[in-house]
Design a protein around this nucleic acid. Structure first.
Length: 564
RNA sequence: GUCGCAGUGGCUCAGUUGGAUAGAGCAACGGUCUUCUAAACCGUAGGUCGUGAGUUCGAAUCUCACCUGCGACACCA
């Protein structure tokens, strides 16, 4: 049953011959509100050829249209509005959802193709900030969406585990730190040394020389330097993993920057072979002036490699290892030029697959309108935010549902869910100013609102005795109160496809809010558990809504508690 | 300065491919729990869609110019 096809065919019978099927299909739109109809055809384009006013045309055509298969077909102004047969449509949609359950909306666009996703990528020895949250949850959600579309996502945590900052850290640690202090609270204390280093280096530039020397030792394989580095890294990973497990995020690989240390010579060799490398101001670069871009710096004056060199190595490694169909990088939009350069250089190297690399950029989180800076110690610690959110959730539970079991688990799911959902709700390119009250809000367009809606739906199903559905059930619900909800259920697969096409978790988040809202309206206006012949169909709506809400939340990486 | 992104009610944002009176949520005000979880629902109020031109039967949406904000612009990542 394809209702759009039915409309196209119905229209073609009465439209002038010069209008093609493709044109009709393209012109059909969905009215803003259901009271105008379910589909509409605007007649403006016919005005010229028919020499008539559009609303007259609409009126004439409606007179000729065969309304078989529709509830009704009417004209409103210049539009021909189609009202679908609600009962039949509902029956079909509800059976689809109930039968496929959590597989509803699955698609095979990807055909199992590998999609490495570079995400999260925090820096060792620095705390995870709200900025890392963005990369982590956006990447995680995109991975789930890709999976649902039939791709094989490979989540890669490209840890910032190499570079001069470790020289600084070692200097700071040796000057002001101790083993006991670090073990007691690793990240905060390491951060303390790092911040202090930057403060003191302003007065004493010789500290920077010392830091560079220590990093050089790391690169040369110095035992003490590497021992400290490994230690910092282990401690950091332990803390990161604690946060990842709270967020429910798992990685397939933790191949950070240091992983590519031995893979960069090859890149430099290839660049040399292809005559792409030129010397400029003592550094080795790839000239990109033909693209109006500053050059790609491959090697510094001192011979050390740079960011893009490493990323070239990583890109090639990923192609060689995973033979990806596309390769995604969930990285802030301030690095968009870097990825533009990366793709161009790869292309110049002769790798056509550079077209399959996509920078999934996202906007900055600021405080007071300013960019956060770890160096200045002005960061919003993710863990504090999660903690505040969970505590607030706990408070709400004690007020609203004091007899709830598993209070702590639910508070965790709701608090963390609120933070994650808030981050995914808006288009990822939007930057926003951090505001704790807004992030941990539980009312209105929030994660907890969606969770709550699902919990209420599940509660009804429990009260109904967890009814089983089968293919013979007549689910021909034609209640106008449920109509928007049913249409939304039907659109879920196309919503997922769109979210995947533009790499936008917010599309799913917005959809889940819409579905929750429409279900809450239905819930408020209709008695679902009334003992009459429509009971089973109503319960089918409730069950379908809970299936789709849970799947939507799952795609966002947000938990769906059964009660709250 | 150059390039990129953005500008929609007091605040935060929706608005596939141009289409019917520009939609939500917060905040404000007023209603709704003897009935399925009131983290909900209903209503009231609030908008020159940054500004000015242009394209079009039709523009928040497309084009151009300008204004404002943010970001990036060679040895950090």
């Amino acid at each position: 049953m394809d209702s759009k096809k039915l409309i196209v065919n119905t229209l073609l019978k009465v439209l002038p011959d010069e209008i093609t099927e493709e044109q009709v299909e393209k012109l059909i739109e969905k009215p803003k509100t259901s009271d105008l109809g379910d589909y509409a055809f605007p007649t403006f384009i016919l005005a010229k050829s028919l020499h008539k006013a559009p609303n007259m045309i609409a009126e004439d055509l409606v007179g000729q249209i065969d309304p078989a298969g529709f509830e009704k077909v009417v004209n409103t102004g210049a539009y021909i509005n189609f009202f679908l047969d609600k009962g039949e449509f509902a029956n079909s949609v509800l059976h689809d959802v109930l039968k496929q359950n959590e597989d509803y909306g699955n698609q095979n666009e990807g055909n199992g193709g590998n999609v490495p996703i570079d995400m999260s990528s925090p820096n060792i020895a620095k705390p995870m900030s709200m900025g890392h949250l963005r990369s982590t949850v956006i990447g995680n959600s995109i991975a789930k969406i890709e999976k649902k579309l039939g791709y094989q996502p490979i989540k890669i945590n490209h840890l910032g585990d190499w570079g001069t900052q470790f020289g600084k850290l070692i200097v700071g640690y040796k000057m002001w730190g101790s083993e006991e202090e670090v073990e007691a609270d690793p990240i905060n204390n390491l951060l303390k040394y790092y911040v202090r280093f930057h403060k003191e280096a302003e007065e004493k530039p010789e500290l920077d020389d010392e830091a560079r020397a220590w990093f050089k030792k790391m690169e040369d394989g110095d035992e003490e330097a590497l021992k400290l580095w490994t230690w910092f890294k282990e401690l950091s990973l332990k803390e990161f993993n604690r946060i990842y497990s709270r967020l429910g995020v798992e990685f397939d690989h933790f191949t950070g920057e240091s992983f590519y240390n031995d893979k960069m010579d090859e890149i430099v060799d290839i660049l040399e072979q292809k005559n792409l490398l030129v010397e400029s101001r003592g550094a080795e670069i790839v000239d990109l002036s033909e693209y109006d871009l500053s050059p790609a710096l491959i090697k510094k004056t001192d011979g050390a490699t740079l960011y893009i060199t490493r990323d070239l190595a990583a890109a090639k490694y990923r192609k060689d290892t995973f033979d990806f169909v596309k390769s995604l990088y969930v990285v802030g939009s301030e690095q968009s030029e870097h990825f533009k350069k990366l793709k161009i250089v790869l292309k110049k190297m002769g790798y056509d697959w550079s077209d399959d690399i996509h920078h999934i950029e996202f906007g900055l989180i600021t405080t007071g309108g300013k960019k956060l800076s770890t160096r200045k110690g002005n960061v919003i610690l993710l863990e504090n935010v999660l903690q505040d959110a969970v505590e607030l959730a706990k408070k709400q539970i004690n007020e609203k549902n004091p007899n709830l079991k598993n209070k702590d688990d639910v508070a965790e799911a709701v608090g963390v869910g609120a933070v994650v959902f808030h981050d995914l709700k808006n288009e990822r390119r939007d930057s926003f100013d951090f505001n704790l009250e807004e992030v941990v809000r539980f009312e209105g367009e929030t994660g907890p609102y969606v969770q709550y809606t699902n919990a209420r739906a599940l509660s009804i199903l429990r009260k109904a005795g967890n009814i089983e559905f089968d293919a013979n059930d007549a689910l021909n619900l034609d209640d106008p109160e449920a109509w928007d909800t049913i249409k939304l259920l039907q659109s879920f697969p196309s919503v997922i496809a769109r979210a995947g096409r533009i790499y936008e978790p917010s599309v799913i988040a917005k959809y889940s809010l819409k579905l929750a809202k429409s279900f809450n309206q239905y819930y408020a206006h209709s008695k679902i558990l009334a003992e009459d012949e429509g009971l089973k169909a109503r319960l089918a709506v409730v069950k379908s809504v809970s299936i789709v809400l849970q799947e939507s939340l799952a795609l966002l990486g947000v938990k769906a508690p059964e009660e709250m």
